[in-house]
Design a protein around this nucleic acid. Structure first.
Lengths: 224, 224
DNA sequence: CGCGGTCTTGACGCGATCCTGACGCCGGCC
DNA sequence: GGCCGGCGTCAGGATCGCGTCAAGACCGCG
């Protein structure tokens, strides 16, 4: 059955969620603060995360930001704040659903079912390894032959988008849209420049790319 | 940009949605009752459906039931009913999100963005296998005897169109229209050239095609 | 204010890709 | 038997996309 990571600092609510989710057939992992949430998400490989925004250490959106670069599964946010600007912020930060407290357990379960039905696209591995370099999506770090390499923010965003779907071709439009925004859909030149830089930093032989391959006219493909 | 099918019988709300969605960069298709909704969903190929449950002819859940067997994209349900049993029913009937009226437009847009962000990778059956080669539609990769083969964009578009309806005859007009555009309906020569190239790359014996067959005067057929 | 790093933009050469025309083959039809 | 339309095959030239380099714009920081 599916594994759920519940992130909530209220022991009473956490306990209620654990019992309800167990009864519904889920395996439950608990975390009571943001740091633990990120740790558990990386080690327990949950299929879905239920995240309370009101945490003692980190802001909920920070947890989302730490999760999203590498965690592909759905995230359902719980919050006491019903203001729509809060909802928009959380949803745009990567949440898949937003439920305001107090909430009905039946509805929460139904929303979880809906999220899980859609299926997690791609592996949620926080670290991707190749024969020559490794990409740690959770720690935002790349190492070549064990040596850390510095990437600029743009280079990182581009690499993360490619690495998140290994073996799959990623269209140039999708890359441009997720790295530069929807207005830059046609600036394919950017891709050429930054792919070149990434290859120079990561590929054993930048002139004959092994891991960051070009599919002319369509996009790029990361092959581990 | 993405296409949204809006199903609502309230002209005022429909108009507001159309204006807002247009402004947000979406292409909008409207339907004012359930029958029209099913028709438009089939013909317009929307990326996402916004469905009001209160319709004059059909119950909203019936529309959902009619949609779900073949429509893979996300469906966002609008409803005046805030009762959680209604929400559960709609979500379990195949809805991906449920928003109660009155709602905030910004929130609706954020929820649509969240749905589309996830929905780009549909749960289709993306791999087609034959005795000699395999076509992975999601990864955009073709392998012959396990070895990846490079296809040009045109070759890929043509092959994908054929492979999407296995065993079925695909007319030349349909192929030309979907690969080159409506203006090229008569350029049957293109088909001959590119089918030839595909056969050379994929068929065991290109001069005696087994998988990419010609139906003289009609079109082509892919037989797994 | 200066400085280092990063992002954008332009120019250029090269190879791949697309279109186009020519030719031969085959089967149906007159 | 000859004609004709449709198909397969091949090759070459125009065009497009890609990689590469470098210079200018921009930004945050000291």
């Amino acid at each position: 059955m599916s594994r759920v990571l519940v992130v909530d600092d209220d022991p009473q609510l956490a306990r209620a969620l654990r019992i309800t989710l167990r009864a519904a057939g889920y395996e439950v992992v608990l975390a009571s603060d943001g740091a633990a949430a990120l740790r558990e998400a990386a080690s327990a490989h949950p299929d879905v995360v239920v995240l309370d925004l009101g945490l003692p250490d980190l802001d909920g959106t920070e947890v989302l930001a730490g999760l999203r670069p590498w965690f592909a599964g759905p995230v359902l946010v719980l919050s006491a704040r019903a203001d729509s600007t809060d909802k928009v912020r959380a949803l745009d930060a990567g949440a898949d659903d937003y439920v305001t407290k107090p909430f009905d357990m039946g509805e929460l379960l139904a929303r979880l079912r809906a999220l899980l039905r859609r299926g997690s696209a791609g592996p949620d591995e926080p670290v991707v390894v190749t024969g020559h370099f490794t990409v740690d999506l959770a720690a935002r770090q790349v190492t070549v032959d064990g040596v850390p390499v510095r990437l600029t923010p743009t280079e990182w965003a581009l690499l993360a988008e490619l690495v998140r779907s290994p073996g799959r071709l990623v269209g140039q439009r999708q890359l441009l849209q997720s790295v530069w925004g929807p207005a830059y859909e046609r600036e394919t030149h950017y891709l050429r420049v930054y792919l070149n830089q990434l290859r120079r930093k990561l590929e054993p032989d930048p002139s004959a790319p092994r891991y960051l391959r070009t599919e002319p006219g369509m996009g790029y493909r990361f092959t581990p």
